[in-house]
Write a protein that binds this DNA or RNA. Structure first.
Lengths: 229, 229
DNA sequence: TTGAATAGTTACCGACCGGTCACACCTATG
DNA sequence: CATAGGTGTGACCGGTCGGTAACTATTCAA
């Protein structure tokens, strides 16, 4: 971690290697991933559980069933690993978007509702909030390389959501996507702050109400107010 | 900081003292506060700037123009100081609510709009989000004493906002207050994550749209959709 | 003036941090 | 079989962390 100064000698090793050797052998036994991949996914998990500043490289290496030296041969610095872990999560989220699109092809409004449902489910399951947002809270040192990763992620999220709203034909797509995005972010930190009550349901109701508000100029609104959810 | 184990010997000194000596002397020179108060407010500020894990007790003591020994005579442990700093912020926020109420007496709807405006302003001014929420993100060790402080704070906030919505006579006060609360929380972390763009305006528009959605059963809605904000 | 609190100073402790070194190990390929 | 490249091991470095001890300086009230 760059405590006060920036990392002076991060080599940022990102060589392309065989990645994972023997994805599964003849016995059907799932062979372990390559050390690098183990380290990234383990780091991801431990960062989520303990916070980025709350876990040390040694502990990450050990949990990934490898050692600090190997970790540093792949990443050069903890900050490097942080960025890679954030990118990892970021890509998983991108995959979620693709899958969402595929689940309701050519029906953006259904995709929108599906998005709400999926996020609510994620909210109910995931004890810790959004890894990227949490990282933004933790890493306040300006100029930290993770900031770029986080910004890119949030921008991409915002763009996809906005496109979805626009395709769904709501009256003010930009305003709705902003609203939904803030609601999601807010629900996540709410869950962290107000110990574990049920913000998942609240989130869903709020989202559905917001969507209903913008569905069609006049009539959809009345029904939004009349009925719960 | 309780690294892995819990604090074993936090004395939690909270004796009642004269607090601040000589609030101002004859020359009009503002005499400094008592060390304890200096430490709390300084800690508050430094926690906000660098994160709770990102600043050490030594640095706090020095910035408060005192020393570590005095700090420990007052607080017993860093965790104690953290709680006290969070309580400090919490009380300042409570004062903001009282002041909000006083600014538009007997006009809850005006108070609601004033709340939105004030939060948007705070969003524009304050580079770092909500201290309490950020603390919740940073302090993941379960059983940390700060959690109780944070929960109490969030609960109180939620209650006041809900009461305000109810008094304002909107159609679904609970849903609106949940929405507004999530929007605020979300706007704050959004500002942290997506580098400094203008979520203040977005927040305000989203809030106003949400309020308009619930203003009165039927007609207020149409105007919400028709006009921008 | 005396005495008790409170505040400041310096040094120190053990633990842990991120990061590096030298060296032995293993395994795939030539 | 030899070699090379990724991997594992353990010791080590300088620095910082939270927290304590012992002692001195200041303040203020009786």
């Amino acid at each position: 971690m760059s405590r006060t100064l920036v990392n002076k000698n991060a080599k940022s090793v990102s060589s392309a290697k065989p990645a994972d050797v023997r994805l599964e052998n003849g016995d059907g036994v799932q062979a372990r991933q390559a050390p690098r991949d183990r380290i990234v996914s383990t780091a991801c998990e431990l960062f989520r559980q303990h916070g980025i500043r709350g876990i040390g490289v040694d502990a990450i290496a050990e949990a990934a069933e490898t050692n600090k030296m190997t970790l540093y041969r792949h990443f050069g610095s903890k900050d490097d690993l942080i960025c890679e872990a954030l990118r990892f999560t970021s890509e998983k989220t991108a995959a979620f978007w693709d899958q969402l699109e595929a689940s309701h092809p050519n029906d953006p409004m259904a995709q929108l509702h599906s998005w709400v449902k999926a996020r609510a489910q994620c909210l109910a399951d995931n004890k810790y909030g959004c890894d990227l947002a949490n990282a933004a809270v933790e890493l306040k040192e300006q100029g930290h390389p993770a900031h770029a990763v986080i910004e890119n992620f949030k921008l991409a999220q915002q763009r996809r959501l906005e496109k979805l709203c626009r395709d769904a034909g709501v009256s003010e797509p930009e305003l709705l996507s902003d609203t939904l995005s803030m609601l999601m972010e807010g629900a996540q930190v709410s869950k962290l702050a107000s110990g574990s009550e049920g913000p998942s349901m609240r989130f869903m109701r709020a989202c559905e109400a917001a969507i209903a508000s913008f569905r069609q100029p006049a009539k959809a609104m009345a029904e939004a107010v009349g009925s719960e959810v």
